[in-house]
Design a protein around this nucleic acid. Structure first.
Lengths: 223, 223
DNA sequence: CTAGCATTCAAACGTTCGTTTGAACCCGGA
DNA sequence: TCCGGGTTCAAACGAACGTTTGAATGCTAG
């Protein structure tokens, strides 16, 4: 049968995915050649095309491996909130949204951190096909959260909420991607051990305040 | 003398910079070849190396052309605030910081919008040399704003402020870069005419609320 | 043991990359 | 008029790119 001794099933695939994740994070898609990639993975140059078909298909696989479970987790957290009748708190909804993303940062050994940075970068990816790809992967979870926030903040104009969600999304994306640019502001200290729990509290406080900011100045100006 | 009839002084340089700005925005640095770039600019392939020396030097020139004036404007706005004794308002400081960035979005014809998206993308640029480059360009203005916010928010722990500035920076970067992903949340409507004034109000309200969010939950958790 | 299939391998494919070259061109000052 | 420096041009450079190929290899079922 197709069953084998436990270890090596699809080991080459996994090693390619891991190496691609790290190299794409470091040098981008176009900046990572198949040769450097397969060298890092310790596999033959032709292995990528054999197992994935093309470089673009490999990029897609890299995202699918992490993104599909992450969005499932996001929706699951939201459904748990709704089942427990805690979905009326914007802060709780925000926390449910960002937690699956931040969890990547804690997984330094498994490469989750690499993927977190890669993911954050890809939101602003020049390559249109890649941007469309992750857009499609996100769309379902995004609609769920939009609906949940509309219920939790019934007094907020739809258009305003869209923009605030946009800002929220951006903050998370940047936080995941640019974990090394904090020192640009701080002036020093890379602080290489990341306290994801503390970061979650900081992000939640910042985003909850922003999302529920008073509307009056806007109404005045928009009139 | 080196003086000429008004028009064509350095016209080739300018056309290359304009074309590079747009192509880098659309396809990234590695995705934009010298051939496509010079073709778009309507100049000879060798012109880039003649006028700039190399592709990397061209990238640097593209950023310097817009970024240096922008950071000068940022510092000027802050100094105006301090001269008028309005620097105690975090909201005013935020507005001074984001305005020069958002102004790019209004300049659709002059290519400022192209550069805005390019700039937002570059904060999370894979290419380390490019990231260092814009980091250096930003550093002086950044330190000024950090000091101003420390004075305006004396009760806030330094480390917390650094993170909130980081979030703020990220939101702005993402807003500049991902002007087309709003529809990912909205579900439709590219809304191609940008109301930069309204966006400024929205951003300021969101960021001011986030930056001055209550600290209590953090103190509890960090203990 | 052997046949058959999935996988790996070294080598080469044609294309495109950034850069260099040396001749051609333009034009203001002697 | 002709000279000379700044600029543009077509052509070519070697290197690196993603992909393909066909033979070698390892493993499993019969």
């Amino acid at each position: 049968m197709t069953l084998r001794a436990v270890k090596p099933q699809h080991e080459t695939r996994t090693r390619i995915l891991d190496a691609a994740e790290e190299l794409f994070m470091q040098h981008g898609f176009e900046g990572s050649s198949m040769r450097s990639l397969t060298a890092k993975a310790g596999v033959n140059l032709a292995a990528v095309n054999y197992h994935f078909g093309s470089k673009h298909a490999l990029i897609e696989a890299v995202f699918r491996r992490r993104l599909d479970p992450m969005n499932v987790a996001r929706v699951a957290e939201l459904e748990k909130l709704e089942a427990e009748d805690r979905a009326s708190s914007p802060e709780a909804i925000i926390r449910a949204f960002i937690t699956p993303g931040l969890r990547l940062l804690e997984d330094a050994k498994g490469g989750g951190r690499n993927f977190a940075r890669l993911l954050g970068r890809t939101y602003t990816e020049p390559n249109k096909a890649v941007r469309q790809l992750i857009g499609l992967m996100y769309a379902p979870a995004m609609q769920r959260y939009k609906a949940a926030l509309e219920r939790a903040l019934p007094q907020m104009p739809r258009e305003e909420l869209v923009w605030r969600m946009h800002f929220m999304f951006g903050t998370l994306a940047y936080t995941l991607a640019a974990t090394d640019t904090v020192q640009l502001i701080a002036g020093c200290k890379p602080e290489d051990r990341y306290d994801a729990r503390l970061l979650e509290e900081r992000l939640t406080a910042f985003l909850a305040a922003g999302l529920t900011a008073p509307l009056k100045s806007l109404i005045k100006k928009a009139a």
